[in-house]
Design a protein around this nucleic acid. Sequence first.
DNA 1: TAGATTGTTAATCGATTAACAATC
DNA 2: TAGATTGTTAATCGATTAACAATC
Lengths: 215, 215
Amino acid sequence: MEAKKPELNLQTVKRLPSYLAILKKLDAAGVEYVSTTALIRELKFETVLVRKDLGSLGIAGRQNLGYRPKELIAAIEECLGWNKRGEAFIVGVGALGSALMGYGKLKECGFEIVAAFDVDPAKVGLEAHGMKILHVSKLPNLAKRMGVRAAVMTVPAESAQPVAEMLVQSGFKGIWNFSSVELELPENVAVQNESLAGGLAQFTRKLNVLLAKEA
Amino acid sequence: MEAKKPELNLQTVKRLPSYLAILKKLDAAGVEYVSTTALIRELKFETVLVRKDLGSLGIAGRQNLGYRPKELIAAIEECLGWNKRGEAFIVGVGALGSALMGYGKLKECGFEIVAAFDVDPAKVGLEAHGMKILHVSKLPNLAKRMGVRAAVMTVPAESAQPVAEMLVQSGFKGIWNFSSVELELPENVAVQNESLAGGLAQFTRKLNVLLAKEA
DNA sequence: TAGATTGTTAATCGATTAACAATC
DNA sequence: TAGATTGTTAATCGATTAACAATC
């Protein structure tokens, strides 16, 4: 197995999907080489940043020409694991959970939600985006049978920690956590926190400061 | 007008909603004073971090006692503008946009979506979460009439820049941008970027690295 | 050679963490 | 005094930016 470059910083990783989208467009258009200057025209990142980012993927450019889109696309997908299909469960089919199920882009990234769970008896049995909602009690067995090890967690704050622990017990190795609660889990579980409330706070704060300045 | 402390860093702001939620619970339970040690029991942040965060709000604690929840709640809401009601438009009623409309927490934070817009003639006229979807061409006038200056933008990548420019033209001062595209706008517009794809990338990367290590 | 480019090393900046001082 | 706490200053870390070298 080839060694993954560990120097890939998390902010770089966050930008990779943006690169990927543009590179795919260029590749489809038959472009053989693209320079950083051409890339930033669409991306609006700093050119040094782009070079650092691409460099940390382990892909070398060619002087006077630039980088090969095909090569970069392969490297990015490799790095993110978006080349192999990944299956995931989703726990908590509220407004947000349901939206994520309907969000086509996830599938494009090789990330497929294959089963949905909830505790609410009013929801269990209903369909959401063509999928029957199952009771969480069925999750552990199904996970083992299907070999699923990644989960999207869109549950209310109170349930976050217990649900996460249940997932870990069931052999899950990754939790994409939308609950706005910091989780306490063993080291060998990958957790990615998303906080909509945090984003809203940053947004309203910026707006607030700006409006105060203008007044 | 009292001077806003500019030393409030953006990461602190992102954490404020977490503090707020717990403080409200404590306040409702009649707690008069809370120490940082008590707070982190629920929050799982570092205690120094909590003190820095609270300190940057300009609220002083009392030795041996801690902080007054009521005081902190007021300071946080002031800082984020969550005390006064804020109205916003949403542009782009796809899966994600529609979910945000149904996401109750936003309203709790004094952030209310008061009108929804789309370009798709198939969507215009339909109802989403009890709101009639209007054609974007109606946005500028309605914004002026209602005095709305904040927008949630959940449009596809290609439309992001033009829609943003249209918003700015219509007097908008804040754009909460879910389009995964970096916007080029004048300085005096507050932009908050959210990238679901970026989050997914970070998640799958972490998972990938972890699984590679275990194998 | 001149120009366009990649690539690297050092400086800077923002945020967190560590160490310690101060106080009730 | 001892203990629990707030609060501050310095060290560290991660990421970006600036300056420059190297190459086709």
